[in-house]
Design a protein around this nucleic acid. Structure first.
Length: 566
RNA sequence: UGUCCUGUGGUGUAACGGUAGCACAGAUGGUUUUGGUCCAUCUAGUCAGGGUUCGAAUCCUUGCGGGACAACCA
């Protein structure tokens, strides 16, 4: 958690302005309490991260708290696995909720009592229409609906039936409890919405205590009220629910003493990212069909996927800050997310040498048995990270891409007769090379200039390029997984006639074996991040073992050479 | 042919009746033992029409564009 004090002068988004206004008007006894209310039916994704940063960020800003509340009103879809992963992800992001995690299911008894209150007020009734009949009677956005024949049951009958619903006397779908509002409302959600339905399925927390479960609309606002949430922040699609949110609160608060806190719903536009899908349903499909390795596959936009990919909590928070919060639909370029992780890792990641596609280079005038230890800076952006030594010898590996038999003019790397600097070592000159029968370069022969060792006066000589390298006999092997975007279309789920899976990128994962790393990487711990010099940021995969190192590519370095050659 | 929300550079987001700013992306130059970083410069915007006003991105109005809403999901 940030320890920064409230910065009221700093302009934030419109929600802060609304809160400031409520504060100025003295609402809610000048208290602020937010909540993050996930349904435990899937893993959290980057869109949730935006909401988490918003809700917890507001709490921090106003020196207030934020609750974690699981919206667990549908046992058909919800699982403990998700409850656990959600908590892990929020903690990883760096936020701490107030007290213990809360659950809407904790409030089932209270909700039930309030439902009886509504029945007694003539504001709710037990209906026996089938889902099809209800749909048929609901009308359309342009036509009013019809009233249910069960709408005007007697109080006694409603009370009796609702009790028997709870007792388990009816099968799933046989009866429901509906609010009695207005079947002609221009807002579909006010056309006698369902409050309770019968589901004979054990709940992950309440077990088989209940067989009737409250719907979202009847649950959310009341849960906010119970917890004394002042600002209930949600995404735009709930905007049309707001009148209902307020209606339910009006009903349960009628005839009661004026409460100190009356929660207020405020909506903002959800995050959309191009080249990805964000719906939990589609993410679940990718997992279930084995298209990705799991919810935490590094290509997934889930928080656990980003974590495994090498994203830092700081970078995700920076991203949430940069995308802003407003009420208009938006599509954020995935490049901004990549910018954020580069920005963060640039300052923190140790620079190491790794050759992903190695080709052997022999320094012909370097003694065969000699090993020189070269000093190299751990991070030029952070002097406090110090330096280390790396072994240099007659045979090294360099990147295959760093040699061209017939290089173009602006190729500042190695080619016949060309000179380059080996990072932290010597300037070398290419004298010869060897090819196999397929034309592949197998060995490159160079001479080195002993006067150009880093630190020596002659080392300042200008050469066009600097290459990374590893000593062949000291190098350790590793597997490196290169990731690209999962989808090739900017909006994979934005085409009515095309399934989003049609746009899957067949090259979203490339696994490289036999990559050559400098020796110190043998001790790298899972999730540790490094900059592979001149290549990008990589992290140790969670499955990496000391005898089988696995690195994930988080993001490449900006590459103006590659860009210029497009 | 309903109700509600929403239109600011390519993408996001500020400006709350008084000089349209910031970030990313893009371009150019400089520094550099990472073709990274960093620094400098540049490109590019108020959906359209009408009205109110000394003055409108901002208020009103009419169009037009985009989105949401008819799950016993949340």
């Amino acid at each position: 958690m940030s320890s920064e004090s409230p910065k009221n002068s700093e302009v934030k988004n419109f929600i802060y302005q609304e809160i400031d206004r409520d504060l100025a008007e003295g609402k809610n006894g000048k208290k602020i309490l937010t909540r993050f209310p996930p349904e435990p039916n899937g893993y959290l994704h980057i869109g949730h991260a935006k909401s988490i940063c918003l809700n917890f960020g507001i709490a921090q800003h106003y020196n207030a708290a934020c609750n974690l509340r699981f919206d667990d009103t549908n046992p058909v879809k919800e699982e403990v696995e998700y409850v656990d992963s959600i908590q892990e992800d929020i903690k990883w992001l760096g936020f701490k909720w107030e007290g213990e995690p809360k659950y809407a299911s904790d409030y089932f008894e209270q909700l039930y009592e309030w439902a009886i209150k509504l029945i007694r007020k003539g504001k709710a009734y037990v209906c026996e229409l089938t889902p099809e009949e209800i749909a048929a009677q609901k009308g359309t956005p342009t036509e009013p609906g019809q009233e249910s024949p069960y709408r005007n049951r007697s109080l006694a009958e409603n009370l009796d039936l609702f009790q028997r619903m709870r007792n388990g006397e009816f099968k799933d779908g046989e009866k429901i409890l509906r609010a009695k509002i207005d079947m002609a409302s221009s807002n579909m959600h006010m056309r006698d919405p369902i409050m309770y339905r019968i589901i004979h399925k054990p709940h992950h927390r309440t077990g088989d205590k209940w067989c009737i479960y409250p719907m979202y609309d009847y649950t959310h606002g009341q849960s906010d009220f119970i917890e004394e949430i002042t600002h209930s922040i949600c995404t735009l699609e709930f905007e049309v629910h707001r009148p209902l949110y307020n209606w339910f609160l009006d009903q349960i608060l009628e005839d009661e003493a004026t409460p100190e806190v009356r929660p207020r719903q405020i909506e903002f536009a959800r995050l959309n990212l191009n080249y990805t899908v964000m719906s939990k349903r589609k993410l679940l499909e990718l997992v279930q069909k084995g298209i990705v390795s799991g919810w935490d596959d590094p290509r997934m936009p889930t928080i656990s996927g980003l974590r495994r990919r090498g994203y830092t909590p700081e970078s995700v928070r920076m991203f949430a800050e940069k995308v802003g919060v407003a009420r208009r639909e938006n599509v954020i370029d995935i490049g901004l997310l990549e910018y954020c992780v580069r920005e963060d890792l640039n300052k923190r990641a140790m620079r190491v040498n790794a050759v992903l596609d190695p080709v052997k280079l022999i320094i012909t005038n370097f003694p065969e048995d000699k090993v020189e230890m070269m000093e190299t800076i751990n991070n030029p952006e952070d002097e406090s990270m110090g330096s280390r030594t790396i072994p240099f010898s007659r045979e090294i590996y360099i990147e295959r891409d760093d040699f061209m038999e017939e290089p173009p003019k602006k190729f500042f790397r190695l080619g016949p007769g060309l000179e380059v600097r080996l990072k932290s070592a010597y300037i070398i000159k290419c004298e010869d090379f060897k090819k196999d029968e397929n034309g592949h370069i197998t060995e490159i022969y160079c001479t080195y200039d002993p006067e150009t060792r880093s630190g020596m006066p002659q080392a300042d000589r200008k050469v066009k390029g600097t290459l990374h390298w590893v000593s062949a006999s000291h190098a350790i092997d590793a597997e490196v997984r290169l990731y690209d975007r999962l989808f090739m279309n900017e909006e994979p789920d934005g085409h009515r006639d095309v399934d989003f899976k049609e746009y899957l990128n067949p090259d979203s994962l490339k696994t490289l074996a036999g990559c050559k790393l400098e020796p110190m990487l043998a001790d790298a711990k899972p999730l540790g991040s490094f900059q592979f010099q001149r290549l990008g940021y990589f992290c140790v995969d969670k499955d990496s073992k000391s005898d089988r190192l696995i690195f994930n590519k988080t993001v490449g370095l900006k590459d103006s050479w590659a860009k210029a050659n497009k």
